[in-house]
Computed example of a mutant assay.
Amino acid sequence: MSLPLYQAKAELFRTLGHPVRIRVLELLQDGPRPVSELLQEMHIEASSLSQQLAVLRRAGIVISTRNGSSVVYELAAADVADLMRAARRLLTEVLTDQKVLLAELNRAARPGRR
């Protein structure tokens, strides 16, 4: 018996719900990268990065290939990069709306205003 689509989507978003995993996906939007480059960009322990890459790999979001002595990761599908760009657009819109609301609240809170 397979999962209903909404549950599968929830699992996907749970998998994406870690800052290190999101950063990895952002970095991989520009193309495949060896683990050494990811480590250099992210400034985290190798064991932590390895753990998060394994989660993404098990979920089928990234794929890995061995290139000599290094392991290279890439996005499993271009749709993953599209999802990251959509999230950025959504956040930009939400934060812009919040900024406008905050400005309105600040104006309303000034003395002499009701």
Rank of each mutant, 00 (worst) to 15 (best):
A81Y: 11
V24L: 12
R21D: 10
V62F: 07
A81C: 05
D30T: 07
R110V: 12
A78N: 05
L49W: 10
K9P: 02
A108R: 00
A77D: 15
L27V: 03
V94H: 03
R89W: 15
P32R: 14
V62R: 05
G17C: 07
P34N: 15
R88S: 09
Y6G: 07
V80S: 08
R88A: 13
P34R: 13
I44M: 11
L38R: 15
L95A: 06
A46L: 04
L75C: 04
R66W: 02
S69I: 08
S50F: 02
V71Q: 10
E104V: 10
K9L: 09
G17A: 15
G17E: 13
L27Q: 01
L12W: 10
V62E: 05
L105C: 12
L39Q: 10
E74N: 06
R14Q: 08
V35A: 11
K9C: 03
L27T: 03
A46G: 12
E45P: 00
V71L: 10
E26V: 10
P19C: 06
K9A: 09
Q40C: 04
R107H: 02
A59L: 00
L53D: 07
H43E: 10
V55S: 11
L83E: 12
I61C: 05
P19M: 04
E93C: 15
P4A: 02
E74A: 04
L16D: 04
A109W: 05
E104Y: 08
D79V: 04
V35P: 01
S70V: 14
L91E: 14
L39H: 07
E74F: 01
Q29W: 00
L28N: 10
S36P: 03
K99C: 02
